[in-house]
Design a protein around this nucleic acid. Structure first.
Lengths: 171, 171
DNA sequence: TCCTTTTTAATACAAATGTATTGTAAAAAG
DNA sequence: CTTTTTACAATACATTTGTATTAAAAAGGA
């Protein structure tokens, strides 16, 4: 957040301090708005995939792959999420930046997978949701922090491997 | 990092600005040192577990459980790690705060598990290491950001579930 | 005891930064 | 056309913050 000063942002936008202040009366307002923008953009992308007419298995996998930063755009979003979450974490304003809505989304997705017959009957759905959620965010974190070790294709391979194992569980 | 000013830290330590500066001539030096402290403390804890005389399976599981914030102490360390990683990420100094050494550690641990006969012969070890690593850090992240939803015992259950599945893989 | 080194304190300085104030131009409304 | 609202700009202000300077006190060794 070092460079996210009001002046820098105004300059980048080609505005004066006063002009920017006309729209955002405080810095946190501005930052919160930009985080909201990122969230909306990501949500729109995912909704797009869900709306496609695909076989359930493909739709399930594609949707989850969309949650992980495998290209420049998602990498930038990850950067914003990471920095802003750390920034807003200790603000008294109660800005719950941590709640990005991914968990409830994954719950729905798991319901969809189950109803589509993709999941074995005897799995512990709550646990598998939690596990998948952790795996997704863990991969996202590592792809962001160590891109040289964990590139896009590798992230995909690990994720697909996990999903295959999940859909093939037998015990 | 909002409150981690030189003055705050000096006051908390009962020192004057000059006194603190006698030991750390710059703020980043001070922050880097405190991050190093946290890292060393965590490393020591893990080394302690590894040195114990336990059955391989127990040692394997206990070591991995130690990587995840299930108590106040580890939660505080997680907080430091998160804040500092975000802080140092965009510093020109090339302070690689992201590299915490957990991945190589997990590699060794997987080697140990394999040599102890805990792992099926046909697994893709590199992929399983990556998967476990992501799961561990994902759970850590979620336990930190959403402690009300994901408490210590639940983290343990998910992790143990994963490790059981890993050690029982059949395909 | 004297001298050197280490440690601590007080103060100063310059730069950055969030926010407020005031004024002006453009646009919209009547 | 007049007036009112919106958009933008310039400048000012108060604070915070990292770092520097200078000097005094404490500690340790000869």
């Amino acid at each position: 957040m070092e460079g996210a000063t009001v002046r820098n942002i105004a300059a980048e936008a080609g505005l004066s301090l006063g002009a920017l202040r006309h729209y955002f009366s405080t810095q946190d307002e501005l930052l919160a708005y930009s985080l909201k923008l990122v969230k909306e953009r990501a949500t729109a992308r995912i909704r797009e995939i869900i709306s496609l007419d695909l076989p359930p298995r493909e739709k399930f996998i594609k949707t989850i792959l969309e949650l992980v930063p495998t290209n420049q755009e998602k990498m930038a979003e990850m950067e914003v999420w990471f920095a802003f979450t750390a920034y807003f974490r200790h603000k008294p304003g109660g800005l719950d930046a941590q709640y990005d809505g991914i968990y409830p989304g994954l719950q729905k997705l798991m319901d969809y997978a189950e109803q589509s017959g993709l999941l074995p009957a005897n799995i512990d759905k709550e646990m598998e949701t939690e596990r998948l959620y952790a795996l997704v965010d863990g991969l996202a974190l590592h792809a962001y922090l160590e891109p040289q070790r964990l590139d896009g294709p590798k992230v995909e391979r690990v994720l697909i491997h996990h999903l295959s194992a999940l859909m093939a569980t037998e015990d």
